[in-house]
Nucleic acid binder design. Structure first.
Lengths: 115, 115
DNA sequence: TTTAAATATGTAATATGTGACATATAATAT
DNA sequence: ATATTATATGTCACATATTACATATTTAAA
């Protein structure tokens, strides 16, 4: 498959956005609810400036939309398909983990032919 | 959906691995071929130490496997499903780059109501 | 117009990632 | 042993990310 550089770089950027558990948590909370910042803060258990900061990143990369109502800003998943991708990734890692924590491959594989 | 912290962190780590165009390029080259390092170097047009470095990261996080034959080390996708995920992401960003609304998006973003 | 609530932004310390480059190791052949 | 090829590792300068915290901005109500 031939992929343009611009596309690769854009994909890499989205992956960077997703490479943070706080942002993933926020996305997951928004799976079921459109929610304002305070509600998100109360549910993901992070300080408000942190949540605002991560929401700004999610918004900049078009992972969420937002709309203002009075003093409240409501955030919403832009494309639910993103969460399907995250689901797939969680499935991947849970399959890989299988009981053992797997930050790295610590378990020795076959001695002779591997290294 | 309720997700354990360990799982979230593991998914975030894999996302971090994927957040680099050089690593994605290497994974894509391995889509069609099992290949040794030199072959990869010749095809992705990156200096050899860079390729070895990125391969080490891909191996540590179990995105590729490797086997040694003489002086050559052959790398192979560990789980082709990973590339399906990358495909999905490339599809996602190709929509974004063209400024197209996402497939599942109900309303088009309007300047006036945004800020 | 002062106050309070909701949200966003700025700053600084620390940490982590990146890319270029030099060099080390490992296997094989001469 | 020495040389050669394939691959891996170490280092350094640089850039970017993370987090906590303080403060600014916006809105609406009293």
């Amino acid at each position: 498959m031939k992929v343009s550089n611009a596309l690769l770089e854009e994909a890499a950027k989205i992956y960077k956005v997703l490479s943070n558990t706080n942002r993933i948590k926020i996305l997951y909370f928004l799976e079921d609810n459109e929610a304002d910042v305070s509600t998100i803060v109360n549910n993901v258990d992070l300080p408000q400036p942190m949540v605002s900061h991560q929401l700004a990143i999610l918004y900049r990369y078009q992972l969420v939309t937002r709309s203002k109502q009075g003093t409240h800003v409501f955030y919403c998943l832009d494309d639910p398909h993103i969460l399907e991708m995250v689901d797939a990734m969680l499935g991947h890692v849970s399959h890989e983990i299988k009981g053992e924590p797997h930050p790295y491959r610590k378990t020795v594989r076959v001695k002779k032919d591997e290294f």
